[in-house]
């Protein structure tokens, strides 16, 4: 029998894969991919809670997260293209303008 815990643990594992990506990748594009993974991991958690508690709110949140992810991709990709045109690279280490 698959319980809520199964889904939540799956969600946690996926989230941590996303975290690994965020920590590890230096390429801006792949960093964005990792954030997509994080968002999806959370979505699974929301949908599971929604199902096991019989409440639609979770699904609503997942729905809005999808909307936010879509806008994030649109803006993020735009910015990334601008950056690439200027610098010719997407490497995070090249972005040191905020050096303290």
């Amino acid at each position: 029998m698959i319980t809520l815990s199964h889904y939540l643990i799956l969600s946690a594992i996926l989230f941590c894969i996303g975290l690994i990506g965020v920590y590890r990748r230096k390429n801006l594009l792949l960093l964005l991919f990792s954030t997509e993974i994080l968002l999806n991991a959370v979505n699974i958690g929301f949908a599971a809670v929604s199902k096991f508690y019989g409440d639609l709110t979770g699904q609503m949140f997942a729905f809005f997260i999808i909307a936010i992810a879509a806008s994030e991709v649109a803006v993020g990709l735009g910015l990334m293209i601008v950056w690439y045109k200027r610098r010719g690279t997407l490497d995070l280490d090249s972005m040191q303008s905020m050096h303290g």
Partner: peptide, 17 residues
């Protein structure tokens, strides 16, 4: 703790972690 402010996004993300 000044090293935290390296300006390197990757490092910052790790600190966030």
């Amino acid at each position: 703790s000044r090293v935290v402010q390296s300006g390197n996004l990757s490092n910052m993300l790790r600190w966030m972690g």
